[in-house]
């Protein structure tokens, strides 16, 4: 192979590459770049090499892209807020005891239900008596009732991820809104937002059924790993699409991932993590469809960027942040 351009040349070539990629780079930048390339033939060679690498890396498969982003893309605001957060940690630790409220409710059959609850902005991991692992999202409530024939769990609100210890003689059944999810050797994520339910399977299979479906109609299906089932109470229908395990459980790493979800659902879930609640003033905004990632430690910067994506206006008020229709505001 011909001699490699020196590191210094490579550095300058990369600087030109970044400068030329600027959308506003004008004809004069191109002229200056041409002058640089004609100074020495190694200049253009180095430039071609950095361009080629950038192209290769810009067309990686989705899994590689996501894994690199996960490793290297960290919110700056979190680093800046590190000190105040550390100071707040001691207070949070004291409050945690109260945040996870574990209560006992007496049931007719003599079986007791155990209730797990998490506070705003607090994810909790715990293990159930049968070894099933649960990750409970922020501001979520879970009720667990283990009988001899069945293990019943209800997600009353919020989100939970289950890694189920399978036992065919004692099925693991999650009730969430109008839907039941029955494990067939599985790990899956369940989220309830009002009456809307989303189930994402990361491993194995589950059977999902609409509890209120009439005897005649069949509204149940089996979902396998990599599938996401959304239940919409208005349509009383279930739709299936694709989700990666990393996306389904991103919230466990403080990232909320939304794929084609109504803004109203996004806001409701964000509020489980937000210090100050977010209100939608104009109901028509709730139907806007959003796809993207929100870091729970950078919610404010996400809110600030919202008007660039949607026709809405952000105003900060004492009780929280209000989103209103930009067309209404303009009058």
């Amino acid at each position: 192979m011909a001699s490699q351009p020196q590191d210094q040349t490579m550095q300058v070539a990369a600087e030109w590459w970044a400068r030329l990629r600027e959308p506003g780079a004008g004809d004069d930048v191109a002229e200056q770049w041409l002058a640089w390339t004609s100074e020495d033939e190694r200049h253009l060679q180095a430039f071609e090499q950095v361009s080629a690498l950038a192209e290769q890396l810009g067309t990686l498969d989705q899994v590689s892209r996501q894994s690199l982003a996960k490793e290297f893309v960290r919110p700056v605001s979190a680093q800046r807020r590190w000190l105040p957060l550390a100071a707040a940690a001691s207070i949070a630790a004291v409050m945690l005891g109260g945040a996870v409220y574990i209560g006992w409710t007496q049931h007719a059959a003599g079986i007791t239900a155990q209730v797990y609850q998490s506070g705003i902005a607090q994810n909790r991991d715990f293990t159930l008596p049968d070894g099933t692992k649960v990750a409970l999202g922020a501001d979520s409530t879970l009720s667990v009732k283990y009988g001899s024939g069945e293990r019943d769990v209800e997600v009353r609100n919020g989100e939970a991820y289950f890694e189920v210890v399978h036992d065919s003689r004692r099925p693991f059944v999650v009730m969430v809104g109008d839907v039941t999810v029955r494990d067939i050797g599985t790990a899956f994520d369940v989220r309830r937002t009002g009456e809307r339910v989303m189930v994402a399977v990361t491993q194995g299979r589950v059977a999902i059924a609409d509890r209120h479906a009439n005897a005649g109609q069949h509204n149940s299906l089996e979902a396998t790993a990599g599938q996401r089932v959304s239940y919409d109470p208005d349509a009383s229908s279930m739709t299936v699409d694709i989700v990666t395990p990393a996306q389904a459980t991103a919230w466990r790493s403080n990232r909320l991932e939304f794929i084609d979800e109504p803004l109203g659902v996004v806001v409701a879930n964000l509020n489980r993590y937000a210090g100050k609640p977010l209100h939608v003033a104009d109901p028509n905004l709730n139907a806007l469809i959003y796809t993207g990632t929100i870091r729970t430690d950078a919610i404010d910067s996400w809110i600030e960027a919202l008007p660039q994506v949607f026709p809405l206006q952000v105003s900060r008020e004492a009780g929280g942040v209000v989103l209103s229709d930009a067309r209404h505001v303009q009058r």
Binding site: D7, M10, Q11, A13, A14, E15, W17, A18, Q49, V50, L53, A54, L57
Partner: peptide
């Protein structure tokens, strides 16, 4: 970006 690109190359 330029610095990282040159380094990776």
């Amino acid at each position: 970006v330029a610095h990282a690109l040159a380094h990776c190359r």
